[in-house]
């Protein structure tokens, strides 16, 4: 099994988001960076699948030069190699999908095809919901999204998606593309040894050709503030009787 997993570097936002002066992004002076929870599960699934079936895994991102930090985190968790498509600004979904498609074709020309290409279902920031589908289309491979369970075997992948309380089941011939969601597995933390080894693994840096964006950001802004003033009912257990009044007022008791 050869698996490619695609991730995106995003700010680790915490509770408050402050915009940059040019309104083009989030002020990250006091923030770290991460990948989306869906993508953490995609990375974990790649590592677990290779552990169970043999083969190799590769992690790829399109983003700034500093995004090698996110690639190394994946390497530390057991991914074998990394590709960084370096860009100096954000790319729109079409241009991103095109660059990933070309990188896949290039990687596959040099070796084995990827049986599975995994994405997070949507990025934490832009949530475009389309890059996996565009890549699958360009490579003429089947694609299923919103996947929360994967079984691999016999040249096929059985992928499940939640539908209310039930599961929809898809059976795809590999090679296939899947967009996965958090809940697929419980991602591991990197081991100290993994982190040390990851520093020595090579990152294949490439500079794809930019394209004219067709979905072009003008600026970010905050939505209108909602809500008013919080009423402090009190300190500690003594405030509990007031909660009963609230429950009665809301007719939930």
């Amino acid at each position: 099994m050869n698996i490619l997993v695609c991730v995106k570097r995003v700010p680790d936002t915490g509770a408050k988001m402050v915009l940059t002066d040019d309104e083009q992004g989030i002020n990250t002076r006091n923030l770290g960076f991460t990948i989306s929870p869906h993508e953490e599960c995609a990375v974990e699934e790649a590592v677990q699948t290779v552990e169970a079936h043999g083969g190799a895994s590769t992690v790829l991102t399109l983003g700034p030069s500093d995004a090698d930090e996110q690639l190394r985190e994946s390497l530390a968790k057991g991914v074998d190699s990394a590709v960084l498509l370096e860009t100096d600004r954000e790319w729109d979904p079409q241009a991103t999908a095109r660059a990933i498609t070309e990188a896949v074709q290039q990687q596959e020309a040099n070796g084995e095809p990827f049986d599975l290409i995994l994405f997070g279902n949507e990025a934490s920031d832009t949530a475009d919901y389309q890059v996996p589908i565009r890549v699958a289309k360009a490579l003429d491979r089947p694609c299923a999204t919103s996947i929360k369970a994967i079984e691999v075997g016999d040249g096929k992948v059985r992928a499940k998606r939640e539908l209310g309380a039930d599961w929809e089941v898809y059976e795809l011939e590999m090679p296939a593309v899947l967009a996965v969601m958090e809940g697929l597995n419980l991602p591991r933390h990197p081991s100290l040894r993994g982190t040390m080894t990851a520093k020595k693994k090579p990152v294949d840096r490439q500079q794809p050709e930019p394209a004219e964006p067709k979905l072009e950001k003008i600026r970010l802004k905050h939505p209108p503030e909602e809500g008013g003033q919080v009423e402090i009912l009190g300190q500690g257990a003594d405030a509990a009787p007031k909660v009963v009044q609230i429950l009665r007022g809301l007719e939930v008791l």
Partner: peptide, 19 residues
């Protein structure tokens, strides 16, 4: 011209959609 959710509606993006 579109206005769309980002960060799960925590922020809004104004964008040009050339389709």
């Amino acid at each position: 011209h579109v206005v769309r959710h980002q960060w799960g509606s925590s922020l809004l993006e104004e964008a040009r959609l050339k389709g």
